[in-house]
Amino acid sequence: MKILYLLFPFFLLFLQSAAGSPQALGKREDCLQRNGFCAFLKCPSLSLIAGKCSTFQLCCKT
């Protein structure tokens, strides 16, 4: 029960970052302009990581 007051702020910060922001959209657009695509957690085979689109998405290039 003592850890509950520490867990609550962490949970709120996690939800706030998962909600998305205008910066995340800009990163996605930058990835697409560089002829890349966004993939969830890992890039498919024969693709290289070229950056990040958002918290859980990577920018991949073939």
Rank of each mutant, 00 (worst) to 15 (best):
45 S>K: 13
55 T>N: 09
20 G>D: 02
13 L>I: 11
61 K>Y: 04
10 F>W: 06
45 S>F: 12
25 L>E: 13
23 Q>E: 13
53 C>K: 02
36 G>M: 06
30 D>N: 06
41 L>V: 15
11 F>R: 01
19 A>E: 04
44 P>W: 05
32 L>Q: 10
36 G>E: 05
31 C>H: 01
51 G>Y: 10
37 F>R: 11
10 F>D: 01
57 Q>T: 11
55 T>L: 13
52 K>W: 06
6 L>C: 11
57 Q>C: 03
18 A>T: 09
17 S>P: 00
31 C>P: 00
3 I>T: 11
33 Q>T: 07
6 L>D: 00
35 N>G: 12
46 L>P: 00
60 C>K: 02
53 C>Y: 00
55 T>C: 02
26 G>T: 05
36 G>V: 08
24 A>F: 02
38 C>D: 01
50 A>P: 01
55 T>M: 09
8 F>Q: 07
41 L>F: 14
49 I>N: 08
39 A>G: 06
33 Q>Y: 03
4 L>D: 08
27 K>I: 00
17 S>C: 09
30 D>G: 01
61 K>G: 06
42 K>W: 15
51 G>N: 11
15 L>T: 02
27 K>A: 12
13 L>N: 04
38 C>W: 01
30 D>W: 00
44 P>T: 06
10 F>A: 15
33 Q>I: 04
30 D>A: 10
1 M>W: 08
3 I>D: 03
15 L>R: 05
49 I>G: 01
3 I>W: 11
62 T>F: 01
3 I>C: 08
44 P>A: 10
7 L>S: 15
5 Y>H: 11
1 M>P: 09
